[in-house]
Design a protein around this nucleic acid. Structure first.
Lengths: 153, 153
DNA sequence: AGATAATAATGAGCTAGCTAACAATAAACA
DNA sequence: TGTTTATTGTTAGCTAGCTCATTATTATCT
């Protein structure tokens, strides 16, 4: 047993770290009326505009109803707009209106700064290693989740 | 910039990993009628019985209302019981009833196995390093959260 | 063409985080 | 002793995850 039973376990440590990250970023984004989860959606759209809601959900690895509700909030505050798709009347394509772009740039600055604060004291190599190892753990869990459907024997 | 802007950022990677861990463990604990968060409370009590609710919240790094509600659920299903404290009528001390101990042992087995699955392919050294680095990141974020009260200049 | 299956998005309802505000009690102190 | 302050726990209300079920539409296949 590598992590002995007295320890809470790596998964719980990761969960605590994620909670702190949410707490910190939610607080720093509050002046903009945004939450961390809402920013994650915007960040996806900044990379490429006009995605469908399903694409956004898939990229963020969240479920479609979760993404839908985040978009509801973002739409109400005019951070995004949903445009219908003539070719397929089921899908909405999500766009960032021009008026929101300067605001988004300001938010991005805060997020960048927070990222910087978070990894203080870690070398570039350490950060890359961390990313790789978390990726490996994610892969293991995705596999374990996939096996649930079939016969594990 | 170590993690370039095209990347979602380490914080979001940690959040995704935490979400997967919750999803996996919630699914595996479902046969017991437990969630990951509820198990975390039980794990604290297994280490030492008879804590107060505030002590539990502090150890898990969650807020007191969150802990209180988790205990509500656990109490309803007889995983724990709250006993009054004669010396201080404000506090409840939380205990694991004898009848629940065998069930808890069975759950612990599942949690242990899941932990094992999660870190497959990572050496002991890598795991220890990971724990240290996540600890460093947590420390950075706790510091940043603390500074919010005072003047950052 | 018409029945069936797949897909996009929503709605409802649950758990678990958080904050803010409150009640009851205990501790500190003038 | 009596008033103020601090602490324990709860209530209320918000966001964000999830699952399950439903609607509207498109794709598939006889």
């Amino acid at each position: 047993m590598i992590i002995d039973d007295n320890d809470k376990g790596l998964g719980f440590l990761i969960a605590e770290t994620a909670r702190l990250h949410r707490k910190l970023l939610d607080r720093r984004l509050q002046p903009f009326g945004l939450t961390r989860a809402q920013w994650a959606v915007l960040a996806v759209l900044v990379r490429r505009d006009g995605r469908t809601q399903s694409e956004i959900a898939e990229e963020l690895e969240i479920e479609k109803p979760t993404a839908g509700r985040l978009l509801d909030h973002l739409e109400q505050l005019a951070w995004i707009e949903r445009r219908p798709t003539p070719a397929d009347r089921r899908v909405w394509r999500v766009h960032i209106p021009t008026a929101a772009r300067p605001r988004i740039a300001a938010v991005a600055d805060v997020v960048r700064d927070t990222r910087h604060v978070m990894v203080q004291g870690l070398s570039a190599d350490q950060q890359h290693l961390l990313v790789r190892q978390l990726g490996a753990i994610k892969t293991n869990m995705v596999a374990a989740l996939g096996e649930a459907a079939g016969d594990p024997g």
